[in-house]
């Protein structure tokens, strides 16, 4: 069974625990600047939105890569960057409609979320369950349940 990261921005407090866990897992340092997941703050609206790669089935980044440096991990569904193959051409960063593949000056290659090999640290670090690791076929289930709970009682879910 494949699992997916489910993000519910309304639960996010902007604490960046996900970014710290991500950068530590990936690079052994607490560093939001190189986190694969980013929390965006919309100050005037009072909103925080975590954002990362959704691991598209037809992944534009993977298709665009001229050297096949982005490959599918069939066990996790993640599209992973092979750093030793990547030539730093950045075509994937142009192809990705969501901006979740990025170039890193210090290494000369691109980096993106690899789902930590199937046990994402961001979801484990999140204190409010704004990021959870759920059955890939049911990413909408909890939202449906919340709306269902509100229906008929006048609540908005």
């Amino acid at each position: 069974m494949l699992k997916s990261l489910q993000i519910e921005p309304e639960k996010c407090t902007g604490c960046l625990q996900c970014e710290l866990a991500c950068s530590y897992q990936a690079e052994g340092v607490f560093n939001p600047a190189i986190s694969r997941i980013k929390v965006f703050t919309f100050h005037e609206e009072g909103r925080f939105v975590p954002y990362t790669c959704t691991q598209c089935e037809e992944a534009w980044c993977m298709h665009a890569c001229p050297v096949e440096a982005i490959v599918l991990n069939p066990e996790t569904g993640a599209k992973e960057v092979k750093a030793d193959v990547c030539v730093g051409c950045k075509v994937c960063t142009i192809a990705c409609p969501f901006g979740t593949v990025n170039y890193q000056q210090s290494t000369g290659v691109v980096y993106k979320c690899d789902l930590c090999g199937g046990d994402p640290e961001c979801a484990k670090a999140c204190p409010t369950e704004a990021i959870t690791w759920v059955d890939a076929d049911h990413t909408g289930l909890e939202r449906m349940r919340a709306h269902a709970a509100g229906s008929g009682t006048g609540g908005a879910g």
């Binding site: 407090t13 902007g14 604490c15 710290l20 009072g46 204190p127 409010t128």
Partner: peptide, 19 residues
């Protein structure tokens, strides 16, 4: 109150964001 908000790394998130 619009939402609560956290400082860097904080899992308490006591901050108030108001409109």
């Amino acid at each position: 109150l619009v939402t609560n908000a956290a400082c860097y790394g904080c899992t308490i998130a006591c901050g108030r964001i108001s409109r």
